[in-house]
Nucleic acid binder design. Structure first.
Lengths: 256, 256
DNA sequence: CAGTGGTCTAGACCACGTG
DNA sequence: ACGTGGTCTAGACCACTGC
């Protein structure tokens, strides 16, 4: 009796929380944790409550919470550390610096990187940018351009678009002052955590301006990487077009 | 008593099977299943034994087998189908045709693809090829080149190197006759299942020959994709250099 | 030592596919 | 009706971290 009644409670909850479509309990718990992350209940780098605490809060067993966290950890939203706890993923750690940078040197040696901000303006969103960022045409967006050099060799030219409403205080000055990855800045200063991104990659010929900035011949081949980045809940919060010089670097990828 | 004795047995097994480094039981089970796949005990497309059968065979609980299979399914080596069983991943299904082809049309419409074999010879492996395929320089390798067209537009020029010892009967004739992805052919005809691949991507300028074959201007930008494919146990079994025309197609990728 | 996540087990019931 | 994988629970013990 006690066995089946326990299961029944779980089942009932399962149906109650999901509206029409059935969703297993652990996935609903995953959604609840996700909401907490989105609300900023736990900031990047901080620990979330222990599995037992969460189990008590959500009225489910520890194993169910575990499975929910398993999926969030597989998605790289959370990081488990045995003996310490489970932490919100962050771009502020040396270990995960290259989570979103897939350009690697042909020889293994990691180079010294430097970032030069070329431009940072607030403008009305062009139609295409507005569409991908799910804004209205004419809404304000931040448009910044920068040049990344590795060992003083110009290698990446980035053109970045961000929703103006989310990045209120972002200026050329604050960008120039900041040391480290911009995603870390976005996270600590604006509370926007990049969690996932889709990229479309092409080979293109360098225009005159691009060639000059990157120190390559006009018309020479460049790798064009168009990225849309998402925060919690698959909300797009960045559009970025990068041009990579792939003479001594390559974009690495794994298929499985 | 009975509880702890059960656990002790599992523990002992855990230590017994792993030599020096400790490895959890489910990971050892994973290794055993992997060996079965490698030996060809179950062929691609076939079902492996049920979780209970495997549990009985390996003398562990069903839950432990489940966790082992979970990881193999996450690696795309196995595919679970509720109510039917767990199956060995294959390249012979329409659904997974594009597992290793990341080139997508800019408009959503999937094109009709055609493959033209340009060349297929057996040669002594150049040093570089031998190194990546873990062969000795001079060992025989199969070298084939082909042109893929989408809607009759030449789009991909592939140069492929395979270990001669594994692909004994592979000829221009058999390649030309075969309809469908080459990985499906490799799997059914030669028992070599591609399971994972690493790619290095660059933008390059088309040479005269390449430009002619692909119908693009000489010196124009092409996406160069250098791929090393692996079979079970991370053994490299293919080196491939592809050149993609990215006018109306792009290489898609997801970061997380 | 206490607290965290990690492993392993056992048993119940659900959802799906097939006969 | 039966067998498969999928979910959920409960409880034991292990491994790691930090006080």
């Amino acid at each position: 009796m006690s066995d089946s009644s326990t299961t029944d409670r779980a089942r009932e909850q399962g149906r109650a929380a999901g509206s029409a479509a059935f969703s297993p309990l652990y996935r609903q718990i995953k959604g609840l944790i996700l909401q907490g992350l989105d609300r900023g209940e736990w900031k990047p780098g901080e620990a979330i409550p222990s599995e037992f605490e969460l189990a008590a809060r959500f009225q489910v067993s520890q194993g169910t919470v575990r499975k929910a966290i398993d999926e969030l950890a597989a998605d790289n939203l959370l990081i488990r550390r045995q003996g310490k706890g489970t932490f919100v993923a962050t771009h502020n750690e040396a270990k995960v610096r290259f989570r979103f940078l897939r350009l690697a040197p042909d020889d293994g040696k990691q180079a010294v990187s430097r970032s030069q901000i070329l431009d940072c303006r607030r403008v009305k969103a062009p139609a295409e940018v507005a569409a991908t960022l799910e804004l209205r045409t004419g809404d304000l967006v931040v448009n910044m351009r920068r040049l990344l050099t590795f060992d003083d060799v110009p290698t990446i030219l980035d053109d970045i678009w961000l929703p103006g409403s989310l990045f209120k205080g972002l200026t050329m000055e604050s960008l120039t002052r900041y040391r480290g990855p911009v995603y870390a800045l976005f996270e600590t200063e604006f509370g926007v955590n990049m969690v996932r991104a889709d990229e479309k990659i092409r080979a293109v010929a360098a225009t005159g301006v691009q060639a000059e900035l990157l120190g390559v011949p006009e018309g020479g081949p460049l790798l064009q990487v168009e990225r849309v980045s998402y925060t919690y809940g698959d909300r797009p919060v960045e559009l970025r077009r990068g041009l990579y010089v792939t003479e001594r670097y390559h974009y690495r990828n794994s298929l499985n």
